[in-house]
Amino acid sequence: MGDKKKQKLQPNQQRYQAFQQKRETKRPVFKNCIKAFLIGGFICFIGQLISTFYIYQFNFTEKTAGNPTIATLIFITMLLTGFGVYDRIAQVAGAGSAVPVTGFGNAVISSAIEYRSEGFILGVGSNMLKLAGPVIVYGVFSAFVVAIIKTILTQWGGF
């Protein structure tokens, strides 16, 4: 894909892009990965604490504690997003704050806040899942594909 794209460019465009790229500030990928690992891990650590709290304080099992844990994490995200803190954490954390369920919550909540000025139906209602929508669509779709493969293998594969 990258090569195909490059072939379409005129020679002067290719030259300029190479010239520009040399002077472009690079993403500090390694540093970003470490930060994402640590902050993402910390979010999961908090999730584990909440989960443990529900198991020991209330009568949840390891299986049933998942839902209230996620709800609590999303509630905390809602507060952090509303007070304008989450996007600042995310600039440092990158994937660390985007991949956990809090990132999904932030995508929905920030859209809901942003489009409030266009009303509840066409604003909040239709834009709330603007960023999170693709995650749901392709999440459900890939689950479906995986389920079909599993069914085929178990039914006819003899496993």
Partner: peptide, 17 residues
């Protein structure tokens, strides 16, 4: 930000450029 990028409070990491 709202028109061209993401909602103001969305946590997306921006590159140094």
């Amino acid at each position: 930000e709202k028109q061209f990028r993401y909602p103001t409070e969305y946590g997306g990491q921006k590159p140094p450029t």
